[in-house]
Nucleic acid binder design. Structure first.
Length: 220
DNA sequence: AGATAGATGGAT
DNA sequence: TCCATCTATCTG
């Protein structure tokens, strides 16, 4: 199972995956275009670096669950928990394209927000989907109102070969670079995004990060 | 107990 | 560039 692997391995493969939230107001589905990997206890930038707390507890559980936390006291950010049960790794969902429910997403984000900016940025993404703290620990693979699924192109017959072909296509357009807003371990290229995609958030290096490698590079 | 940095986004 | 103002952690 893909999500049972460490976050740096899972993150690039989640590009193009679909996240759907169905509520009484309607359905919004997004296609992930930008993610970041956080490797848990061994990663100084991870919320789990200093062990389990009431906030990050879900990260230590089984993969496929959602970790929602409050950022800077006002924004919700969402992660997909990865790795085996007991290992706290997660993938932060940074940006996505709204592919279903554009009107509902805009009603949550603001009338004048451009389509491509509806879910551009981790907090915008959760707002467009209507995700908040009440969704923390939800199983994204459990067939509930909030679900994560592979790209449609990967398929109706979700065979290993079909999925592998889709991932290969994605990797051709994928770029990697340092994580955004992270001062620790700023040298690891654990941000992954679809190269040239207009829904990817603008790059900003942490003001405290040391000088490092170039911000972007197309993956080979 | 108080200070502060942080996986931010939007207005000025 | 500044503001809003939650959490976990560090400092006195």
């Amino acid at each position: 199972m893909l999500l049972g692997q460490p976050a740096p391995q899972v993150a690039p493969r989640l590009l193009g995956w679909l996240l759907t939230h169905e509520t009484e107001a309607g359905i919004v589905t997004v296609e992930l275009t930008e993610v970041e990997a956080y490797a848990g206890e061994r990663d100084p930038a991870s919320h789990a670096f200093r062990g389990s707390t009431s906030r990050n507890e879900v990260m230590f559980g089984p993969p496929g669950r959602l970790y929602v936390y409050l950022s800077y006291g006002m924004h919700w950010c969402a992660n997909v928990v990865t790795g085996p049960d007991g290992h706290a790794s997660a993938v932060l969902l940074r940006a996505a394209r709204v592919v279903e429910g554009v009107d509902l997403a805009r009603s949550r984000r603001g009338a004048r927000v451009l389509d491509r900016a509806l879910a551009r940025g981790p907090a915008c993404l959760t707002q467009a989907l209507g995700i908040n703290s009440s969704h923390n620990t939800i199983d994204l693979l459990g067939g509930g109102p909030l679900r994560l699924a592979p790209p449609r192109s990967a398929g109706l017959s979700a065979t290993g070969t079909a999925r592998a072909a889709s991932v290969a296509d994605k990797s051709a357009q994928m770029a990697t670079g340092p994580r955004v807003g992270v001062s620790q371990a700023a040298d690891v290229p654990w941000r992954f995004w679809l190269y040239g995609d207009q829904t990817v958030s603008a790059y900003k290096r942490s003001p405290r990060a040391p000088a490092g490698p170039p911000a972007t590079g197309v993956a080979t």
